[in-house]
Nucleic acid binder design. Structure first.
Lengths: 341, 341
DNA sequence: CAAACCATTGCACAGCTGTGCAATGCGCAA
DNA sequence: TTGCGCATTGCACAGCTGTGCAATGGTTTG
């Protein structure tokens, strides 16, 4: 089964075979592919030639077994085909690769959204870190991860848990700003469109907007429908616009909801935006800039977040202490779905 | 450093430690976590209890070292934040997990779109298979993969290469059908909107449509701009609609291009769709069904493709022979962007 | 009661790599 | 020339698991 000269069709080449072909010890091969190891230029060259000829590639499974780091980072994410999550995955994978790491993607959109099984997978493969982009992992699982030295990073969760690092966007500030936008545009009858299964981040936006409106003495109506998707925004629009006292300003906690809302408002109720009704979204997904929508919204600094997350991976945190969440500010993006003052 | 009783803070638990706590041999621990191995119910229970107490998880790196299979499948993809690719990734990751495999995502959107480095990564981690969703890997790299027993599956590439299995959509048939749609709607001055950097699949759609039009003696204009994105479709619309003899029917080789085209046609040129100009897209991304577009298009059977791809992984192909590509038919989805007959 | 069979279990090896330690050899200075 | 320092190299072990093989003990059958 084992032959040193040539691959026999469909088996991987090992360092031993490269060493025999190059006439050196296996250590020399290992050192050739290890940064900072001591190899003479002569043997290095011979090893590289033999490796190239045989098609050798270092086995990262075995390397990860020895070293403390496997260079695997796992991303736990639901709703991958959502524009916002897709953008986040793109940004993260790109930066991880630039840092010589590789991303494992674990999809928790299944029937029971089992983040637990996903976290187990990440432990199975000894991932250096786990980035949770959505879902609510049980605290017990997180503790297991921490006990095993796992590095857990939560993105967009507004409820700080002991141990993992948390990264959030300034949801409340932005939501108050959204109210200001609509109020200054003259809107006095407001609505918030959210989803029925929203995360803590989305709930925070909804609550903060409603609170700001109440403080200013402005009427505000909260509508929640289905999942956080286009169809839910459309359904919300049908529910709220068919009534006699329809709102003149709407804050959708997600751009996707806003797109659905705008389409129904225009195409089913014949309303013009922003003249008859103003709309503000959140996330700044690509579709928000399409000219059918031209949606005024808040930009999530996806690139900055990704930079920060990847920078966090190699730095080991203090265990079992509540880290203060790192906050990134969501900046307003002015377009045409809100009347100018 | 090594202590059998309890994790000392931040190191992983090994089977040895579980064995000592349960009072059995390490083999018993291994067999408890191996399907079909022979363990008595008594020891199995004791092992499971000890594993639970210590937080043990099988090290899949070491397991992959022994077995011929690592259960890792790598997805090589550019433009992850494109709706079509995101949908494909979602479908694939979901099915891979159902088959007890895990997905590594390699992003080749970087400056030089180096699929080669990506393929090397997949070799490093001994992936069971590599699914290439975009990009043009060099034939030499593919040969290296095949020599190492790698299973390469190409999706949406119309140029068959020796060795890897290929999965394509019936681009040509669908493109001819698109011409029929527009012709029967009375369009006699046609255009194809494509991108300047399109893949072979996109080129096939473009060519087949143009050919069908020529065969029918209908004038057709081919426009290519930038990357395959919304902005390119918009730019194409500005270029083609500002001329005096503007087309009355357009086939966009991608829904994203179609969205950009429609927005400019309506919002910048004041045209009505489908009365003044008919538009047909391709892919059936989610946005095509949004009521601002209501785009007549062709549905890529993403779920079927994903099923087939995942089913292909465990079945070893014949090497170095040109496999006939598996074809899936793209079915038309009738909406409102084409006039009824 | 004896023999045959079967399930279970432990030992030891394999799978591939990184690295400490000692040995080797070479160059340079005294 | 001799001694010292230094770069290089090979040996051997560690890291964690799966599994063939032999041994053990219990159960069933004649």
């Amino acid at each position: 089964m084992k032959n040193a000269g040539r691959t026999i069709g469909k088996t991987f080449v090992s360092a031993q075979q490269v060493a025999e072909r190059a006439g050196v010890s296996r250590s020399a091969v290992s050192r050739t592919f290890t940064d900072g190891a001591s190899v003479s230029p002569t043997t290095r060259k011979r090893v590289l030639e033999a490796a190239e000829a045989l098609g050798y590639h270092v086995n990262h499974l075995a390397r990860g077994l020895i070293r403390d780091s496997s260079n695997i980072v796992s991303l736990i994410v639901a709703d991958i085909n959502t524009p916002y999550q897709a953008k986040m995955i793109e940004a993260l994978t790109r930066r991880l690769q630039a840092a010589n790491k590789i991303a494992m993607v674990i999809n928790t959109s299944g029937q029971n959204a089992n983040v637990e099984a996903a976290l187990r997978q990440t432990l199975h493969y000894r991932a250096d870190a786990t980035i949770v982009l959505s879902g609510q992992p049980a605290a017990s699982l997180i503790e297991t991860c921490l006990n095993n030295g796992q590095h857990v990073i939560l993105v967009n969760r507004d409820d700080p848990v002991p141990g993992p690092e948390t990264i959030v966007v300034t949801n409340r500030t932005a939501a108050r700003q959204a109210f200001d936008m609509l109020f200054r545009a003259g809107c006095r009858d407001l609505a918030v469109v959210a989803s029925a299964v929203g995360s803590a981040s989305l709930a925070a936006r909804e609550k903060a907007f409603a609170l700001a409106a109440e403080e200013a003495g402005v009427n505000v109506n909260v509508i929640r429908f289905g999942p956080t998707a286009y169809a839910s925004g459309a359904e919300a629009a049908r529910a709220v616009l068919s009534k006699s006292d329809r709102p003149d300003g709407v804050f959708c906690v997600t751009d996707l909801l806003a797109c659905g809302f705008m389409d129904v408002a225009r195409n089913e109720f014949g309303l013009t935006i922003p003249e008859e009704i103003c709309v503000v979204g959140f996330d700044d997904i690509e579709q928000a800039s399409w000219s059918s929508y031209d949606l005024t919204t808040f930009r999530q600094p996806v690139d900055q977040i990704a930079d920060h997350v990847v920078g966090l991976i190699d730095h080991h945190p203090h265990l079992h202490t509540v880290q203060a969440p790192t906050r990134f500010s969501a900046e307003p993006v002015w377009r045409k779905s809100v009347r100018p003052r």
